[in-house]
Amino acid sequence: MHGPVSAAWLLVALCAATGAYCLLRMRSGVKEQRRAAGGEALMGFGMAVMAVPAAVFAPPRWAWPVYAAVFGAAALHALWAARATPHHLHHLVGACAMVYMAVAMAAVPPGAHHAHGGAGVPLLTGVLLVYFAGYVLLAGARLVPAAVTVAGASAGWGDRPELARACRLSMGIGMVAMLLAL
């Protein structure tokens, strides 16, 4: 990704921490939590890898099509899972956004930087930005009243809905940042 190096490293740290927490959530006793956490862990780690500053590590040309294939498979899985749970439609949009960004990065000639001329923001980038900005606002609003605890019970790290919402919020913010840097 292109952009300020310090912001990129913050995004890498945020996405990697989110992916790591999602791995913890995969130990939940609730089947649907485990399923969602697996897709979210893939998304968090994938975003972390994609956000590494290009000046530090430039992936080989073959990495972007592989990246697109992995997230294309994740999109197909999310589409299949959306039959039972509508939340997976958000996973579908996220995976498709990752495919889009991988294809966009593959199209950039080696060593070239984006020319910020008068071309403007591509339509698909704009649509994805609007979607994820709206998602961030909605997720943030849902996070505020989430500080409800089960009567006298201490939920494990994998079963804390407010932490899961915070992870989804941070990945949404990360996606907005990555789309802006695209």
Rank of each mutant, 00 (worst) to 15 (best):
E32H: 13
R168A: 14
V56C: 02
A153V: 12
R165A: 13
P161Q: 09
G111A: 04
S28H: 08
G156S: 14
E162F: 11
V70M: 09
P110R: 00
A8C: 12
A51Y: 04
G118H: 14
G39W: 01
A139Q: 11
L180F: 01
E162L: 10
A55Q: 15
A41M: 07
S6M: 03
Y100E: 09
P53V: 03
V5L: 02
P161T: 11
H114R: 10
L143F: 07
G152A: 08
G134I: 04
V56T: 15
G94H: 03
F45E: 02
A63C: 13
P145H: 04
P53H: 06
V144Y: 13
V12A: 03
R34F: 08
R61I: 05
R27F: 14
V66R: 04
A139W: 01
P86N: 05
L42S: 02
R25S: 14
A81I: 01
Y100V: 02
R160C: 06
H114A: 13
A51Q: 10
M105Q: 15
L169T: 02
M175L: 10
G94P: 01
A164M: 08
L76R: 09
M1H: 13
A16K: 06
R142I: 02
H87D: 12
L138I: 13
R160F: 01
H113M: 12
E40W: 11
P110S: 03
W157N: 10
A55K: 10
H113T: 12
P65M: 02
A82H: 09
A151S: 14
G111T: 08
P59H: 00
A164T: 06
T125G: 03
M1G: 11
V144N: 09
W62V: 12
A8H: 06
R142L: 14
A55Y: 00
A82L: 08
A37K: 05
L42D: 00
V66S: 08
C96E: 05
A37V: 03
P145L: 05
H91F: 03
A7Y: 05
G118Q: 13
G29A: 14
A155H: 08
A177L: 15
A155S: 15
Y131C: 09
H90S: 12
L92G: 10
V150S: 15
R142D: 09
I173Y: 00
R34T: 09
M175N: 02
A78C: 15
P4A: 14
L42H: 00
A69N: 12
E162P: 03
V108S: 06
I173L: 15
A141Q: 10
V127Y: 00
V52F: 06
R160V: 11
L24R: 02
W64R: 04
G134K: 08
L89D: 01
T149K: 12
R165F: 01
H90E: 11
A41P: 06
L137K: 14
V127K: 00
Y21Q: 04
A112G: 09
